[in-house]
């Protein structure tokens, strides 16, 4: 192990390590957010489909109400 690096040089390495961690967590959260967006979109489609079916069949709409 060599002697301790000067603060300005060591600071860059420390910052890089913490930024790598932050970037990975943000990338993970971003991917999860896009997956959540897809779930929301599918849910909206299903809700619209259910609404259309209710509109076509008034008896079913009354049942749901």
């Amino acid at each position: 192990m060599g002697p301790a690096l000067p603060l300005d040089e060591a600071g860059a390495y420390v910052a890089a390590a913490y930024l790598v961690f932050l970037a990975l967590i943000l990338a993970y959260v971003g991917i999860m957010a896009s997956k959540l967006g897809r779930i929301e979109k599918e849910l909206t489609e299903l809700t619209e489909l259910a609404a259309r079916r209710d509109a076509d069949d008034p008896a079913r709409e009354k049942e749901h109400a």
């Binding site: 192990m1 301790a4 690096l5 603060l7 060591a10 600071g11 390495y13 420390v14 390590a17 913490y18 961690f21």
Partner: peptide
């Protein structure tokens, strides 16, 4: 600050828990 490594040892608190 670590006596041997100085400021660079701060990575330890991230690397080892990870």
């Amino acid at each position: 600050l670590d006596a041997d490594q100085g400021f660079i040892q701060k990575i330890f608190y991230l690397h080892v828990p990870l």
